[in-house]
Design a protein around this nucleic acid. Structure first.
Length: 428
RNA sequence: GGAGAGGUGGCCGAGUGGUCGAUGGCGGCGGUCUUGAAAACCGCUGUACCCGGAAGGGUACCGGGGGUUCGAAUCCCUCCCUCUCCGCCA
């Protein structure tokens, strides 16, 4: 959520920043500013009347004890109560529109974010590893998987429909191994606390992260009288761990990691990545999440991104890290790094992680504050990143470690998690 | 699914229409005392918003929302949550 004070004091700068994101909110911002002014006009009047009302109530109590007549006080109070009611209704309407406005405006990009319109304007910041040379034409995972009997697209469709997939045998086991491997890495080596959260979240939680009210179409909603949605990412439950809390500043940073399945309707993505495991309605992910003191949050973003990259380093998968431009960032983010893994069959890098600092954007929506000893409460900064998307990591392993005969070598780092299995060969 | 009990400040726990943001205790902070610590004693100790340069002042909040009333933590309605017993179940 936008800081109302920032809106009031930096309207031109805000307008420019949002233009850089490719959204035109000119009129919205003016309307919002007008609501802000209207709000500040109404509040002092209402509070003044309430003050009078309180004094009258006190006086009535005193008068009644002393046996004096209070009908005059009652009449005046009754009338005042009506005026308060009327003005409050006006204020409520203003507050509601103001709130709705504040909730639908995206975050302001950090000054270090390159200005650009699309993914083409993103900036590669580093690259790690070298794609393996192949003496044959590397196959896509959607050919390798079914041939090895470890991915079954047809049965996924039979059970749930398009964009659902069944992993079988060594495929299912490798997904589980990846989850285990990632969680161990982040808890043991990177200092995160493991969490297993609910896989559904309510509308308050989703509003806190920024998924609601604007992006309900991307979510799977539970039918019936439930205020519940399937989580689109563990970012939602993890960020909401401390919603409406004031944290002890000495506990920061707080770092959580969680494995969850993620559910996305992928509305509006018809035709994109229809083959294979790249874009599914359900996928597994290990998430990294941090609550940081504001002054430290950009250092924390670098650390968190490094923690996600470490997964690929240990699996010996080539990748590059890209700084997203203003036009390609998500709604809640002030700065985002995407990590892209090499996929030989596509001869390109594909996104496998997205690491963002939302600054106080989510903290303001979800009311997540911290307080240093003796200090005033202030909003924390929240950060999140994939560490990593499991399905896409599985794809990357299969494609990068494939051999001429269609078998797949198990990366060294994963073997302890797969009872020493060294190679996944075709079914006998 | 059925029956019942309950949600008050960081925690415990009073308060059932009138100076109640709310008695008391615990915890925390500061001070006195002490060689030091403990104990004892004294003081302070919530959040949000509004006005104000500040000092300070005001309004709201006793699970959420609505209502009754001159006036509500206290009465009414409704929703949410927690606990206990039964049933069911991983």
């Amino acid at each position: 959520m936008l800081d109302p004070v920032f809106l009031r004091d930096h309207l031109p700068a805000l307008r420019t920043a949002l233009q850089h994101r490719g959204v035109d909110l000119g009129a919205d911002l003016d309307a919002l500013l007008a609501l802000e002014t209207e709000r500040k006009r109404l509040i002092p009047g209402i509070e003044g009347l309430k003050r009078e009302q309180n004094a009258a109530g006190e006086e009535a109590g005193r008068a009644r004890r002393e046996g004096r007549d209070i009908t005059a006080i009652q009449d005046a109070s009754r009338e005042r109560a009506q005026r308060i009611k009327q003005l409050s209704a006006e204020l409520d309407a203003v507050e509601e529109r103001r709130q709705r406005g504040l909730l639908t405006i995206p975050n302001v990009p950090h000054s270090s974010v390159p200005v650009g319109r699309s993914a083409a304007d993103n900036v590669e910041v580093r690259r790690h590893g070298t794609p393996r040379p192949f003496s044959f034409t590397p196959q896509a995972h959607w050919d390798l998987g079914p041939a090895l009997g470890i991915i079954d697209f047809e049965r996924g469709t039979k059970i749930a429909g398009a964009r659902f997939t069944v992993l079988v045998g060594a495929g299912a086991r490798m997904a589980r191994a990846l989850i285990d491997f990632m969680l161990d890495l982040h808890t043991r080596d990177h200092g995160y606390t493991e969490v297993e959260p609910p896989f559904m979240a309510n509308s308050a939680a989703l509003t806190g992260t920024g998924n609601l009210p604007k992006f309900e179409a991307d979510l799977f909603k539970i039918a019936g009288e439930w205020d519940l949605f399937m989580v689109p990412t563990a970012e939602v439950p993890l960020t909401n761990m401390h919603r409406e809390e004031i944290l002890d500043g000495r506990m920061l940073p707080i770092r959580y990691t969680a494995y969850t399945p993620c559910f996305r309707s992928e509305a509006g993505s018809y035709g994109a990545d229809v083959r294979g495991l790249i874009r599914q309605h359900q996928f597994d992910k290990v998430e990294l999440m941090a609550f940081s003191a504001p002054a430290e949050s950009y250092n924390e973003l670098e650390r968190l991104t490094g923690h996600a990259e470490e997964v690929l380093k240990r699996l010996d998968l080539p990748y590059r890290t890209v700084l997203l431009c203003t036009g390609d960032m998500g709604f809640a983010s002030a700065k985002t790094y995407d990590i892209e893994v090499w996929l030989p069959s596509q001869n390109t890098f594909r996104e496998i992680s997205s690491c963002s600092n939302t600054e106080a954007f989510q903290a303001r929506r979800a009311s997540i504050k911290y307080r240093q000893p003796g200090g005033k409460p202030d909003f924390v900064h929240t950060l999140n990143g994939s560490g990593l998307a499991v399905g896409r990591t599985l794809i990357a392993v299969m494609e990068n470690y494939q051999q001429a005969d269609g078998s797949v070598v198990v990366p060294d780092a994963l073997r302890p998690y797969m009872r020493g299995l060294e190679i996944i060969g075709p079914p006998k």
